[in-house]
Simulated scan of single mutants.
Amino acid sequence: MSRDIQITFDSGDPARLAAFWAEALGYRPQDPPAGFPSWDEALDAMGVPPERRGDASAIIDPTGSRPRLFFQRVPEGKQAKNRVHLDVRAAPGLDGDARMAALEREARRLVALGATRLRRHEPAPPHAGHIVMADPEGNEFCLD
């Protein structure tokens, strides 16, 4: 049986984190439900009070081939290292110096968007090398 997945992030600021990941991955904000020209109108119809409208945000892959990312507000901040993380494939098909140069370019772009560079792992067989990053709320991910 085939199943779709959604990746959910707990967040202090769902809209900000969704905007970061949309830029990082080439995603876009999810459209409002059918029949509603805007999210505000949809949320009005759902009875969501204005003060709760920033509690969630979702982004989608424009091609529809990758999973939806959902961001939900939680009261607590990040407490420890992620047990699951995303690997952002930023250098497909590249090896050695060319691979690491592509990863460095992507790391600089993501830092400009609010990410933090944590550490670089050099290529050493059997591993091709990668850069460990954190998103604006400290969630670790790898540029791979």
Rank of each mutant, 00 (worst) to 15 (best):
A101L: 08
A98N: 05
S11C: 07
R73W: 09
Q79M: 12
A91H: 03
A134F: 11
R16A: 14
S38K: 02
E106F: 00
S38V: 12
I59L: 10
P92L: 08
V84Y: 04
S57E: 14
L86C: 01
D61H: 01
W21R: 03
P49V: 14
L17Y: 08
E51W: 05
V88M: 02
L110Q: 00
D135T: 11
H121I: 14
S38N: 08
D61C: 00
L143D: 01
G77H: 03
R68C: 09
A128M: 10
H130F: 15
C142G: 05
A91F: 05
P62Y: 12
P32K: 15
D40Q: 10
A19S: 07
G35A: 12
A112T: 06
P32L: 13
V88H: 02
Q72G: 11
N82A: 11
N82R: 02
G64S: 09
A112V: 01
Q79H: 05
R83I: 06
R83S: 09
T63W: 02
L110K: 00
E106L: 00
M133A: 12
F71L: 08
W39G: 10
G138A: 11
A102C: 03
L113H: 12
P123N: 15
Q30V: 10
V48W: 04
S2G: 06
P33C: 12
A90T: 07
D44Q: 11
G47P: 03
P125K: 15
M46G: 09
G96N: 09
A102H: 00
R68L: 13
I131V: 15
E137F: 03
L143I: 03
Q30M: 13
S2D: 08
P49C: 13
